[in-house]
């Protein structure tokens, strides 16, 4: 059974934050989610800001106790056995938490010491890790002088210091330029090939499509659906989509004219169809005159839209 060798099993997992002050109200950021992650796979949480991705990741990292449900990581309870669980995980938090006053090497050193490695062991491992992160020539450089992409790679290198079985990456490429993202994706591919289980969150559909074997679509603390990128696309959307743009204010009206098969967004209409060109011909026949019309392949962005009625990044 697949369940037997699941590295991570979550059932009915919830996280409710207490009110920040007397006037505030408690907030349920994760509202009961079930998922399993298997050894060697790259598993993703795709969802917009506020979906509860980071809250879920912190529970997986053993630094945030679930308020309800069950969670097993590597067969252990991350609350009762937090120390043992964390010893076998690598964590790349959403916000870089490197010490900018210290050098690249010192950052690795103090982190290695946290895991109980000797100075000598860290030094030996640091060479490999810096090579992996393509930072060989930056060892003595202070982190404040590194670019965003370099810092991100260093954070990943640091998370690998204890040779973790599972690497948790919270929005690994948010805020990076396209080139830096590709370098980072390439490094993550390599890790996956080395057998490290990757768990990542993202609100970029291309990242989810590139990196994830399997993912869950998350919105408002709940999982809307689960599957491989291909499966999700096949399950929820047609092969192609026709994007139509009109002058401001006309979208609603045209939407009503074209009927149920179209999604009306503030800036455009989306017509899901297996043959986009044919849909365009139909629209033209119906007397619709868009400013621009574009036929493209559907992606996870469209899946998200179909599942939640909202777009991923707004």
């Amino acid at each position: 059974m697949a369940v037997l060798n699941a590295l991570i099993e979550a059932a009915g997992l919830e996280k409710t934050y207490p009110a920040r002050d007397r006037k505030g109200t408690a907030f349920r950021a994760v509202a009961g989610v079930d998922f399993q992650v298997h050894r060697g796979e790259a598993f993703g949480f795709l969802g917009p800001n506020g979906a509860g991705k980071s809250s879920t990741m912190r529970m997986l990292a053993g630094v945030s106790a679930p308020t309800a449900g069950t969670l097993r990581i590597l067969g252990l309870d991350p609350v009762a056995d937090g120390r043992r669980v964390r010893a076998r995980l690598g964590v790349v938090p959403q916000d870089d938490s490197l010490d900018t006053q210290l050098t690249v090497e010192e950052n690795l050193l103090v982190y290695g010491l946290y895991f109980g490695l000797s100075r000598r062991a860290v030094r030996a491992r640091a060479g490999e890790l810096l090579e992996f992160a393509r930072l060989e020539d930056k060892a003595g450089e202070r982190v404040e002088h590194l670019s965003g992409g370099m810092r991100r790679r260093l954070t990943i290198a640091r998370a690998l210091i204890n040779e973790p079985e599972i690497l948790l990456l919270d929005e690994p490429t948010t805020g990076l330029d396209p080139q830096a993202r590709h370098v980072l994706w390439d490094r993550l591919f390599r890790l996956k090939q080395d057998g490290v289980t990757l768990i990542l969150t993202t609100h970029y559909m291309d990242e989810a499509e590139q990196l994830c074997d399997r993912l869950v679509v998350m919105d408002k603390g709940l999982i809307a659906d689960e599957g491989s990128p291909r499966e999700l696309i096949e399950r929820h959307v047609t092969r192609e989509v026709l994007e139509l743009r009109f002058p401001p204010g006309e979208h609603e009206e045209v939407g009503r004219k074209l009927g149920d098969q179209v999604e009306v967004l503030p800036d455009r209409l989306l017509w899901y169809a297996d043959d986009g060109e044919q849909a365009l011909a139909q629209a033209t026949e119906a007397g619709v005159r868009p400013l621009t019309a574009l036929v493209r392949r559907t992606g996870l962005e469209d899946v998200f839209l179909r599942l939640t009625g909202r777009s991923l990044t707004d």
Binding site: R83, R84, D99, N162
Partner: peptide
């Protein structure tokens, strides 16, 4: 601001 504690909290340290 510096997230020194959260960095350490991700490791076996309590």
């Amino acid at each position: 601001r510096e997230r020194i504690y959260s960095t350490a909290a991700a490791t076996p340290l309590e």
